[in-house]
Amino acid sequence: MLHWERISVLICKEWLELRRSRGLLLSTFLPPLILALLALGLIFAMGLVSDPDTAEIPAAAIDPALAGLGLEALAQVIFGRQFSTLFLLLPMVIPNVLASYSIVGEKNRCTLEPLLAAPISTGDVLLGKVLAAIIPGIALTWLCALIFAAGLGFVAIDPAVPGLVLHPGWMVMLLLASPLLALISVALTVMVSARVNDPRSAQQIAGVLIVPVMLLFFGQMLGLFVLNPVVALLFSLVLALVAVGLLWLATQVFQREKILTRWR
């Protein structure tokens, strides 16, 4: 049985610590906002300069909805779609950084034993730490996506561009896949935390997680597939299965006895 009051106390403590760590706060939260603004700036630039290579792209073959767009608008859509995929990296990277500092940090400072001596279950502690890491990660991802979506209306040279960039497949990925990616990222961080003593080592696992998202990125870029809602749902389903499995493994690693006697 979960004790939400204690979980919320733990989450508040985690966020208070985060707020006090200015360096971590800025280095984690500023780059995603810059990414969103940079993407808008580049899309705006695409609309200003006509690239003759764009005419070579078999746009209609990739996605019939792109037929009939001007070259600049087409460049904006293609670039916008590729860039929008990168937003899926955020829910993996941000929670991974926060969770690694939270768990490995507690391990290094020897604060885990007093915490585990309290009448709180390890499930509650784990859930508190997972939520404290993924909530800011997902919130920031969605905030950046919102800025990107809102800004797209201003920088698009064709009113059809925003609708074509922010397509249903991307929406599904953003709303469904990003929380799952965040969960996977934190579950892996918990497992790695048992073995490492440096938050940066725990963060290396984000490198592994980037692979499936980069496959989506390059797959779209090369025209191998279009991220339609069906592909996005299937991708999310696979992620959900992986997330459940990894979370179960994380709960096995995050046991009072193991933390105190096996974690090194």
Binding site: R6, K13, C110, E113, P114, I120
Partner: peptide
């Protein structure tokens, strides 16, 4: 415990109230 195990970035009051709530 053998080492005090306190949260360095939190104040003395915040450390105690956190554990009291737990």
């Amino acid at each position: 415990t053998e080492t005090p195990g306190l949260y360095d970035t939190l104040s003395a009051l915040e450390n105690l109230t956190f554990f009291a709530r737990l």
